[in-house]
Design a protein around this nucleic acid. Structure first.
Length: 203
DNA sequence: TGCCAGGCCCTCTTTAGGGCCTT
């Protein structure tokens, strides 16, 4: 698989369209099955963190007061990931925040997002749940740290992606797992996984 | 101090509703 950047946001809520902002970002660079780079930072947007979110993530308003400004952090993380394809667990969530925070610093995403949640639903349809923590347990992958902290979640999403690629190679006899193939699989109707893989292999 | 969204997918569906996921 090509080199990718697996990212994870912690935020004040679910929707940037409703005023929610990022509180923490992490990105890990995954190359040839190894994490070769890590970026992690809290970020101060001035937005208030509700008590429920403080409890969920452990990221408090107090912690964010001394965090670097979001504009600086987003510049750094954008430079860190470059043009590598981005991967996130439930990418529809992280892509919204990525695009919203990038727009605030007048930068535009050029690469696509791959979603490990959608891929898991295709490749591990039998898993009891497709939330990140359940998939880590289901696949016997190491817990990298506290759930709902950006770097731990990004590292676990990266190991899950590796496991999904392994499953494609071993169970579905895929010779080369590419970002393009993953992109096709996550968009394919659930019932047509085998057909989708066969078609991609034949091209 | 603390409200909230939206895409995917299944089914008791398709002129809809609701659970799953993300914080």
């Amino acid at each position: 698989m090509e080199t990718v950047a697996v990212i994870d946001f912690e935020t004040t809520g679910l929707s940037p369209g409703q005023g929610d902002r990022a509180t923490e970002i992490a990105a890990v660079i995954l190359k040839d099955g190894e994490i070769i780079g890590r970026y992690q930072s809290l970020m101060n947007t001035g937005a208030w963190v509700p008590a429920f979110i403080e409890s969920l993530t452990g990221i408090t308003n107090e912690m964010l007061r001394s965090a670097p400004p979001a504009s600086l952090v987003m510049q750094e993380v954008a430079d860190f990931v470059g043009d590598y394809p981005l991967v996130a667990h439930n990418a529809s969530f992280d892509s919204k925040f990525w695009d919203a925070e990038m727009a605030r610093i007048d930068r535009t995403r050029r690469q696509e997002f791959v979603c490990s949640l959608l891929l898991s639903r295709r490749i591990f349809p039998q898993a009891p749940s497709h939330k990140l923590s359940a998939l880590i347990e289901y696949a016997n992958l190491p817990v990298a740290g506290r759930y709902h902290r950006a770097l731990a979640d990004a590292e676990m999403a990266a190991s899950l992606l590796q496991r999904l690629a392994h499953e494609l190679r071993e169970q579905h006899k895929v010779n080369t797992v590419s970002v393009d193939l993953l992109s096709r699989i996550q968009r394919a109707p659930k019932s047509q996984l085998t057909k989708c893989i066969a078609h991609a292999q034949a091209v």
